[in-house]
Nucleic acid binder design. Structure first.
Length: 310
DNA sequence: CGTATTTGACCACA
DNA sequence: TGTGGTCAAATACG
């Protein structure tokens, strides 16, 4: 429906993929330059953000090149209420979980189901700490659904919740559906620079990072059947890698104080100043640094590949 | 021993 | 009335 009209207003998929790759290349070159000259001034973007952007650009390109239209695997199911709406009011805060009764919330309404994320990794780290409060066998699915709420549910009266359910066996795909929003204002992503989904309140920018510039209407047409598992798998491995970095730094997702540790270990910059260990610069070396995009306007130009780095 | 997870029961909604 | 969401006691874990 809106697919064609949206596509008309955008470049073709091929062009978008090319743009993604080119932009990733630019980021890689920029990263190389920054690594070559770590003491140079004028670094508006951290190395890690650059690396993150590179990964997503290529993931985006792969996704575009994949045979299926991008499904909601790494996107949100209810984008219309969130899309580009700095003007639209944030969703109303969820009701406190601790009502006197076991009242069921209206989770089935589109307005309360904020977004979903599919991942091949059941331990997918989205930057927030969650506490499991239930597990249920779902009639429609052979897999059980796990219920989580924000670990700061009590401390900060945070009403964010999520459901996690395995929706596909081979390859495994785990769908996480998020409800409500974080009022705890604790998003480890900001410090970790993780390429994950974020708070539904003030992480609209974060959420953009996995839109990949695809038209959103297209998302609504394709559903769970069209998972770009290969792409997601790559992302999952990357996230695991990122988590390993945390673990190496003595931070685990189960550490309730980890956000404090992170904040202490990192600069307060939202984009994060943490530079991951450069495992190998070999790939970067293939780029010619004289092609490096110095003009930051290009970042704006490729804003659709902005994954929440700014 | 404190905290997180599990699990059966309870409850509301369709 | 069936299903799914939540509670809270029991259990597991570090």
């Amino acid at each position: 429906m809106a697919k064609t009209s949206t596509l008309n207003s955008m470049n073709t998929s091929h062009e978008k993929a090319v743009q993604a790759i080119l932009y990733g290349q630019s980021c890689a070159k920029r990263l190389k330059l920054q690594l070559d000259h770590p003491m140079a001034d004028g670094r508006s973007v951290s190395n890690y953000d650059l690396a993150k952007s590179i990964v997503h650009c290529f993931s985006s390109a792969i996704s575009i090149f994949s045979d299926k239209p991008k499904s909601e695997d790494n996107l949100f199911s209810d984008l219309s209420s969130r899309d580009s709406s700095s003007s639209s009011p944030p969703p109303p805060p969820p009701l406190p979980q601790r009502s006197h009764s076991k009242k069921r919330k209206n989770n089935n309404t589109n307005s309360s189901e904020n977004w979903r994320h599919d991942s091949p990794d059941p331990n997918y780290y989205d930057g927030f700490l969650w506490r499991k409060y239930g597990q249920k066998t779902i009639k429609q699915s052979k897999h059980q659904r796990s219920y989580y709420r924000c670990s700061y549910n009590i401390d900060h009266a945070c009403g964010a919740r999520k459901h996690e359910q395995k929706i596909k066996d081979n390859p495994p795909v785990y769908r996480t559906t998020y409800f409500g929003h974080h009022t705890c204002n604790i998003n480890h992503n900001q410090d970790a620079g993780l390429t994950t989904v974020g708070d539904s309140v003030n992480d609209l920018e974060n959420s953009r990072m996995i839109w990949f510039g695809e038209d959103l209407d297209q998302e609504k047409e394709s559903h769970t059947s069209g998972l770009s598992v290969s792409v997601k798998h790559e992302e999952g491995s990357i996230k695991e890698e990122t988590m390993d970095q945390y673990r190496h730094r003595g931070i685990t997702s189960h550490d309730k104080d980890c956000q404090n540790v992170i904040k202490e270990n990192h600069q307060p910059s939202p984009s994060g100043s943490y530079t991951p260990p450069s495992s190998s610069g070999s790939e970067i070396d293939m780029f010619d640094s004289d092609l490096l995009v110095e003009d930051l306007d290009l970042w704006d130009r490729y804003d659709m590949y902005d994954f929440g780095l700014r």
